[in-house]
Structures are given as structure tokens and as C-alpha cells.
Design a protein around this nucleic acid. Structure first.
Lengths: 201, 201
DNA sequence: CGGCGGATCTGACAAATGTCACCGCCGATC
DNA sequence: GATCGGCGGTGACATTTGTCAGATCCGCCG
């Protein structure tokens, strides 16, 4: 019996995935969580063999949860299960110690298959996505550029961002300008979109 | 036996929901679709009692699919199943003839319950969301303002938008300005976010 | 018929944004 | 010890964006 933890914020999807895994005779869902921190707490208690983690969750993402579970329950294999197959997500997931990366638009049958494969010690990664992640290279944005770009994403003005990050307005403009350059964008909106689509934010 | 059609673009989620509905002895999934147009085609063939439609799907959204299914299979009850409980979505869904509106972060048990209730002729709508939709009022943006705002969402400049919509740059700026005003935003980025969160785009 | 509101446009203006050159300060690395 | 890259900053500048006051058409409604 493979003991599985499932972290996914949308309750209906989580329930549906549990029922999907419930069809498999050799898989047992021993814990559920709706956020990153909750996943870590449940993993500590339930000590699952495999943790299925969504990335986009409110209040703590699945990747940082992955790293923490890796520390606390070293034998637990981490599978990232996400809506968006972004190169940067894959890269960060691997760095956080994940052994599999599944996108939700793959057929449902691949979920149980992936759980079994990671339990046998294999890795499960979409070859196309792996190629994209490697060819795209690492995140070119410096940490501060990421901060500023993320702060700009919601429509804040330069003044707002400067206040929030305790920077001068000129500095904010400089970081935005260099982020725009590095993402080959023409303005901050495009820069945000490009960075998001690469999983850099 | 209640015959159900399920339209949802993410294959894994779709499969999981099918398995969830499969647990119910009185519900049978008689068709699946991954896009709006496909849902209409499958509905025409399978003639389901209930159609479960996601809104956000590539290549034709669930709301226009709802209206078309309503015409072609008048006895089929439409249930909208969506990630985002946006007031504008609910309003448009109702106008398109939907009888239920479910958000995916409700518990999984509510799905089968909703299917049974609509089959009995009831409507299923979250009271909080209904209140939000009514108190927010209808979309204040004129059709053209929506077009321009939507075109601005991806980081296009005024010039790009003018070219794409065959307008003068001044007109584009005027529409953006009035959209910014109507959404109580300070710039186009905030306007896009506000309009999105209301389901106006 | 007259008025209203939407769509389209113009021109002018103020404010915000993006770019560039250049400054100093650190910590790491060759 | 020198160099390089990241961080933080300044000031000047061009461009873009947002605002406002008008203007013309058109269709609809009382």
C-alpha cells in the first residue's frame, strides 16, 4: 500500500483527486491539506510515502512546502502537481527536492502511474517541459528585480512600490527598467507577463 | 439514472471529477469535453440531463456553450462549475440560462448534490455570491471600453491597441481613461485587475 | 421633433513611466 | 589587490500614459 498526502487548495478538485486515487487498490490517501503550511503539518503527522503538492496555493506555495517536507520526512517522495507547466516552476521544484512534476492537463491515468513510479525510485518529468526549462536557462532577474516586478504586478505606481520596499523612486524605476530589458519586454506589464509565464515570479 | 455531460479543459481534473461522479449510484457521465464548442457537439449527440460546464476553457468559454446547449437541447439543465466566483460570471451564466453556479473550492460532496437538485428543477446558487452579484450591479463598461481594456491587458501600448482595433490613439486613450474611472482604478493595470475580478472581461 | 448616450475623433496638457549615465558601497571571486 | 556584480541612489531626459474639453455622427426613446 502506498500512503499518499494530497495538498490542493480547491476543495472540489482535491476531493475528486482523492476519489480518483481511491480507485487504485494499492494507493491510500492518508492526509489532505489546503495550503503549503498545512501540508507540512499533515506530513509530519501522517508520514506519507508520497506527497502530491499543488504549487499555486494561498498562504504558502507548494515548492517551499516541498523543501520543508524534504527536511522533516526525508523518505517521503515529492510530486509537484500543477496547472501551469512553467520552466521556472520545474527548476525550483527540482531544487526543492521534488522527484516528479505533473501538469494537470495530462490524462488522469498518469497520476496513479506517477505515484507508483516515484515509489519505485524513478523520476517523472515531461521531456518537453524539461527541455524548455533547460533551454530557457535560469531566472535572469536579480532578487531585487523580482521583488520590484512582483510589487508592480498589481497596478501599483512607482511611488507605492518605493514605499512598500523602502526604496527611492529612482531606484524602483531603475529596477523596473532593467527587468523590462531582461525580459525583452516594452513596458512593465509585458515584463510581468513574461516573467510569470516563465515561472520567475 | 441522471445522465451528465462534463466539460473541463484540464484532463486530470476532468478525469478526477468523472471518478467522483462515478461513486454516485444514480449518476452516469455520458459525455466529456475539453472546450466549449466540443461540449456543444457532445451534448447534441449524448442528450444529457445535466451539463456541467467550466467557464475558463481555451477556444470558447462555458457561458457561450451554455447558451448554445440551451437552444439545442432545451431539456438539459446547465450547471456552471468554475474556479472563480466572480459576480459578472454569475450574472452572465444566469443570462445564458444556467440553473446552478458552483465554485470549485466548495466541498466535493456539493457536486453530486447540485446535480440532483437541478434535475429536480431546483436552482443552486451560493447566497453570498448572489448578493455580491446583485449589489455590485451590472457591468458599467461599454462594449468598446471592454474591448480596449481587454486589449490592454497583455501589455500592449496604446499604438498596438489602436492598430488592432482600427481606432485612433486618442480614442484608445479616451476609452482607457473612462474605463479607469469607472473601475475606480489609478491606471490601466489596476483597471484590468478590477474588471477581471468582477468578471467583466 | 429634441434630447440622450455611445462611438469616434482631435488637440493640448500634466503626470507617470522608461532610459541613461554615473555615483558609492559591499561581498565574492580571480 | 583588483575586478565584477548586485544593491541603492541621483539627476536629466524622452516617451508614454492619463485627463479634459470639445467636436461630429448615429440610433433610440419619449
Amino acid at each position: 500500500m502506498i500512503r499518499v498526502l494530497l495538498a490542493e487548495d480547491q476543495a472540489m478538485v482535491r476531493g475528486a483527486l482523492v476519489s480518483l486515487l481511491g480507485l487504485e487498490p494499492d494507493i491510500e490517501v492518508v492526509g489532505e491539506a489546503a495550503s503549503g503550511p498545512e501540508a507540512v503539518a499533515v506530513a509530519r503527522e501522517a508520514r506519507p510515502d508520497v506527497a502530491l503538492l499543488d504549487i499555486e496555493m494561498p498562504g504558502g506555495d507548494g515548492i517551499t512546502a516541498a523543501a520543508m517536507i524534504r527536511e522533516e520526512v526525508p523518505d517521503c517522495k515529492i510530486v509537484i502537481l500543477t496547472t501551469f507547466g512553467r520552466p521556472g516552476y520545474l527548476r525550483r521544484a527540482m531544487e526543492a527536492g521534488a522527484v516528479a512534476f505533473l501538469v494537470k492537463d495530462r490524462p488522469a491515468s498518469e497520476l496513479a502511474a506517477a505515484v507508483r513510479r516515484v515509489r519505485r525510485g524513478e523520476r517523472v518529468i515531461d521531456p518537453d517541459l524539461a527541455a524548455a526549462a533547460l533551454s530557457a536557462g535560469p531566472n535572469p532577474l536579480s532578487p531585487r528585480e523580482c521583488d520590484v516586478l512582483a510589487a508592480a504586478a498589481d497596478g501599483s505606481t512607482v511611488g507605492d512600490i518605493a514605499g512598500r520596499l523602502h526604496l527611492s523612486e529612482g531606484t524602483v524605476r531603475n529596477y523596473l527598467s532593467s527587468a523590462i530589458h531582461k525580459t525583452h519586454a516594452r513596458n512593465r506589464i509585458e515584463a510581468v507577463r513574461r516573467a510569470r509565464s516563465q515561472g520567475w515570479l
